[in-house]
Design a protein around this nucleic acid. Structure first.
Lengths: 336, 336
DNA sequence: ATGAAAGCGCTAACAG
DNA sequence: CTGTTAGCGCTTTCAT
């Protein structure tokens, strides 16, 4: 094993005390120019790199935070991750990325490890709706911010996306185009995201004195194939449909494909709106009208909130932030 | 600040020595059942979580590794990242993810921080072709594996994708379909990836006694728009082209769009082959024939190699692994 | 303006 | 089978 150069070696070489070395490294008290020079020189010569682990242990602050997401290969999450890393890096933090794989057991394991590694805070997109362990985690003294999930019966810092608005905006836009018979592809099981969207969607109809017929809702997975299936079912049941709102972009692509199979063109025959605004949505033919998930804003808000919590750890009441998504109008929709 | 429960507290509560506590935690020497019980009970009651930072400092092993990639929101990298995290997690490692943003300065900063945080190893997709600092890093005693980049004049462990084969397979397939006039969209500046691919591509022509006309190469960016532009230039210069090989999938989508603008259909009028095999390639219409980048295999090989290096740190000579990509035939190609 | 020394929480060599 | 104790490399109080 290679000898690790430490602060003591520097002190000896520079003929000063270890305290002085530490202080010049951290600029934490005044040191005469002469000593600074000697120390810096010694550090250079020995290729010294401070041991942050030792420092963290002493200081009880690791300058690393944990990010737990269900799946870092999902574009939504990887986008958030990248931006979080960017912001935090600029504040001298590193991020340990953990995949829960939508499994609460793994989530818990990761939480424990992160605690053990003394992270200064964590950002989490929880795997499930269960949040007892998150509360417990914060009680331990480590700030934790929940991202993009409404965990019921819990009072923790949360950064949410306004999915109600997402649904509302989509419906309102479709209505403005004259579409009143619209199909709705929902996820298989309810979930705050889908519930909110649906509420907003129906609200827009209401405001026009119309009624959104829930018979026009079909449930499917998040996948391309689910979109294909869904569209067929939808049109079988109601042939008057002139527009379709989907749960995500991939789903929308599937819908478009399914429609093509039926001999229907988008947007000429039927309009389609996606959700998420992943990069592909602007590449697809037709370019997809979609509700953009505010990835960058989420990363920004959640990072800053966490930083704030780390700086002022007193937790009196939970902070909630809600970020609006944005309707992006492109080529897959047109007036009736 | 909340009092952190430590091994001493457990020892006191369980009426044993700290050594015993440490040993039951780490199962590192035999302890009588009775004492184990007492210790475990004490740990539960005090909600004890070992401080891994302290352990790491002592053991000189942090059980965390660093992953430096240019951009974790790029699907290729996020895919690799996810799989690396998965494998390493199963071996009790965490991964600190760092984005270099293709900037060598940032890369260096990250390397230094990782060193300071005593990571047990790093996996890096270097930002540039410069690798002096990587060599230096390993000399310090921390294993480092270079992923998906051929760094010249350097003798370090490397996991590469066989881009030569990628180009070769694509060309061979196109030729088998009868396409001899094929356009080639290349990246703007040369780079081992593009060079290898081109070589392999030309080789397949040679093997058939043909000659790949480099006048059919057009350079563009990685983007959708670049694909559009490129295709137009390509067909202006050589109207006999019946197939196009692109640098990546997005590029291919652009090409398809550009072709559509020109009134040409894929694959009826012209065949298009992409590269990367990102999920969108199987969703696009037409479903894209592409050379799949072996994301999962890369993660697997690189993780295991790193683990091996950590286990046996003696570095005698660099290990090189080459992983073949895979041609996936779908709908965007057809015989002439 | 500088230094000595205690101690962060843990591991492991040594001693029994 | 168990305990005592010396550090890992650093920060920071206390003293000068």
């Amino acid at each position: 094993m290679i000898k690790i150069v430490n602060i003591r070696d520097i002190a000896k070489k520079a003929q000063v005390s270890v305290a002085t070395v530490s202080h010049v490294i951290n600029k934490t008290r005044h040191v005469s120019d002469e000593l600074i020079d000697r120390v810096v020189k010694a550090m250079m010569e020995l290729d010294y790199q401070p041991n942050l682990l030792a420092g963290s242990l002493r200081r009880k602050k690791s300058s690393t935070i944990g990010l737990i997401i269900p799946d870092s290969s999902n574009m939504l999450f990887s986008g958030v991750e990248k931006n979080i890393e960017d912001i935090l890096f600029s504040q001298n933090y590193n991020v340990i990325v953990c995949n829960s794989a939508y499994d609460i057991g793994r989530e818990l394991e990761h939480l424990n490890t992160l605690r053990s590694k003394m992270v200064d805070g964590v950002i989490i997109v929880p795997a499930t709706m269960d949040g007892k362990h998150l509360e417990k985690f914060r009680n331990i003294g480590i700030p934790i911010i929940i991202l993009d999930r409404m965990i019921p019966d819990i009072n923790e810092d949360t950064v949410l996306v306004d999915n109600y608005k997402g649904g509302y905006d989509a419906a309102k836009y479709l209505l403005s185009l004259g579409h009143t018979d619209v199909g709705y592809i929902d996820r298989i099981s309810d979930h705050s995201h889908s519930l909110e969207r649906k509420k907003g969607f129906a609200k827009a109809f209401e405001e026009q004195g119309l009624f959104f017929d829930t018979n026009n809702i079909v449930r499917g997975g998040f996948t391309f194939n689910a979109g294909i299936e869904a569209v067929k079912k939808l049109l079988e049941e109601n042939s008057r449909i002139t527009a379709i709102f989907t749960f995500n972009d991939i789903n929308a692509f599937g819908a478009i494909r399914g429609l093509a199979d039926l001999g229907l063109k988008v947007p000429e025959d039927i309009s389609v709106i996606g959700y998420d605004g992943t990069p592909l949505s602007e590449i697809y033919i037709p370019r997809l009208t979609t509700v953009r998930y505010p990835i960058i804003e989420m990363a920004d808000v959640v990072s800053k909130l966490l930083l704030k919590r780390i700086a002022e750890p007193v937790f009196k009441k939970a902070i909630k932030k809600i970020i609006p998504p944005e309707l992006i109008i492109r080529e897959s929709t047109r007036s009736k």
